[in-house]
């Protein structure tokens, strides 16, 4: 166990390990996405009240769920980077930020598109939607901050502090629909007790959530590999990988 964690910190080892991970996880994720989208779009029944517009749930909810979980991944990498000064943690943080930003963007845009036919408006400044917008800006802030610094160590430190400060937003997003009066409805999937969504609609949703987790893992590892190559472009193992020597 410890030796595995130790190996994760080694750039050439992680690069090879990540490569083989992507090779099987990427096709698996794409298959899950296709099956889940097909199931949700064409097989699942319509909702008794919303009709077919609810089918946006199959991308909106997974994108939002993984955007929140991904923030914890980024903040954890930030904490590791601050405490143990492990370079791989900096790289993981830098790799996760754009993925999280895109997923949050998807959740916001699909939510707006869903809001128009169901609520009657694209946008409303309620607690859930506003806190989600803040999450989007936090992700973008980390992306921008990494670019703003010449010094990589200073950039990683600033980004780690920003992502740690931002973690407070995550429970706020989760609980916003319970703590305040909002237009957004409370969660349908419940970890304790029966879900408020029929099984025939729930299964494709769970499948899509798993697929989006896979997608997050694959894209973060792919970003990390591209970043590692650039960090170590002068080292022997990269030259070997490129086919030199």
């Amino acid at each position: 166990m410890w030796s595995f964690i130790h190996k994760l910190g080694s750039p050439p080892w992680f690069f090879r390990f990540g490569g083989s991970l992507v090779r099987w996880l990427l096709p698996l994720t794409l298959i899950l996405l296709l099956v889940g989208a097909f199931w949700g779009l064409l097989v699942a029944p319509p909702d008794f009240r919303q009709g077919n517009s609810y089918r946006i749930i199959y991308i909106h909810v997974p994108a939002a769920v993984v955007a929140l979980a991904g923030y914890y991944v980024m903040a954890l990498a930030g904490a590791i980077s601050l405490i143990w000064r492990i370079k791989m943690a900096d790289i993981a943080m830098k790799a996760a930020a754009p993925v999280g930003a895109v997923l949050t963007g998807i959740a916001l845009v699909t939510g707006a598109i869903w809001g128009k036919p169901t609520w009657g408006t694209w946008w409303v400044w309620d607690a859930r939607i506003t806190s989600m917008l803040i999450l989007f800006f936090l992700y973008l802030g980390v992306v921008a901050l990494f670019e703003a610094y010449e010094n990589k160590a200073a950039a990683a430190k600033a980004c780690a502090v920003l992502s740690l400060v931002g973690t407070v937003n995550i429970p706020i997003i989760y609980k916003s629909v319970d703590w305040w009066y909002s237009l957004h409805q409370p969660a349908s999937i419940k970890f304790t007790g029966e879900s408020a969504i029929d099984a025939s609609m729930l299964y494709p949703l769970l499948l899509m959530i798993v697929a989006f987790y896979g997608l997050f893992a694959v894209t973060v590892v792919m970003n990390m590999r591209a970043e590692l190559i650039w960090h170590h472009r002068q080292s022997a193992w990269v030259r070997q990988w490129a086919g030199l020597d």
Binding site: D47, Y54, I197
Partner: peptide
């Protein structure tokens, strides 16, 4: 000046609702 519909967290097929 504006009326928005607030739907709840329940999703089910029309047959089940019926």
């Amino acid at each position: 000046t504006q009326v928005l519909a607030k739907h709840d967290e329940n999703y089910m097929p029309p047959e089940v609702a019926a």
